[in-house]
Nucleic acid binder design. Structure first.
Lengths: 136, 136
DNA sequence: CATGACGTTTACGTAAACGTCAACATCGCC
DNA sequence: GGCGATGTTGACGTTTACGTAAACGTCATG
């Protein structure tokens, strides 16, 4: 028993609109089965959607994602093709490593700002206490 | 002696077009000094540009970046404002952590594909060697 | 059988992030 | 003072990733 999904089920599960899912199909990212006019989605479509959303969160464009799918599929080709894929992977890896570094930087910056704010709030609190003790 | 920069110097240093730099100014991300009609950039503008490009590599929109600058500046405000900033920081941090996780997933996927390709090339190599030894 | 609920295609709209002219000012320099 | 390099301000064009609306099919259900 292989479970299938309607477009609205998928859109609910992934918090996308059906419009978006159809758009992804237009862009060649999904190729659902058809029952006449209706679309029928399988688990492999959900896998793809997960990959799509991951890549999107990392800022990849839809065409880059489509290219990726094409690569993964063509990975069983001839030697030249395989070397090409290795090359693309190396470049993507470089981008991701850059992003990792960027994230660390930004996290650091945020922590600095946060700390300054917390310090400030601390001094404000103690000022308040001073005022209270004066009053009492 | 405070070094200053022209727009074309900056565009060269950061590998952006002057159009882009002016656009960032339109969006309120930069506020260079003016000498009549000409723009004069200082080191603080370069700092900002570095932050902008980092954020862009992580997929943040220009308006989010502008908002960030506003936050950092307003960090010395009143308590409510400061709590708000802390809240924004927390949300940003969540996004960045999600991205870190995503990156690890994608790196893992890429490594799997890479390994399969390398294996494939390995078997192809040994096939080739068999052919050679047959020939010799 | 009609009336939602759900699905489909087609097509135009839109916001973001610039690119690409055009038309003009400024500045150093020979 | 003419000329090329550099800079400026509009204004319109372009791509991406959908939103939105129109106009229609289909299927269960009261």
């Amino acid at each position: 028993m292989t479970t299938t999904y309607t477009i609205s089920q998928l859109s609910e599960q992934f918090d996308l609109t059906s419009r978006t899912i159809r758009f992804y199909e237009d862009q060649g990212l999904l190729t659902p089965e058809r029952a006449g006019t209706k679309r029928i989605y399988h688990d492999r479509d959900r896998v793809r959607l997960r990959l799509i959303m991951r890549a999107k969160r990392l800022g990849f464009s839809l065409s880059e994602i489509r290219e990726t799918f094409g690569l993964y599929d063509s990975a069983s080709g001839e030697t030249g093709q395989m070397k090409f894929v290795l090359d693309v992977i190396a470049k993507r890896r470089a981008v991701l490593q850059q992003q990792q570094e960027d994230i660390l930087h930004v996290l650091q910056d945020m922590q600095n700002v946060e700390q300054r704010i917390l310090d400030k709030m601390q001094t404000l609190d103690s000022d308040e206490n001073v005022a209270e003790s004066v009053q009492s």
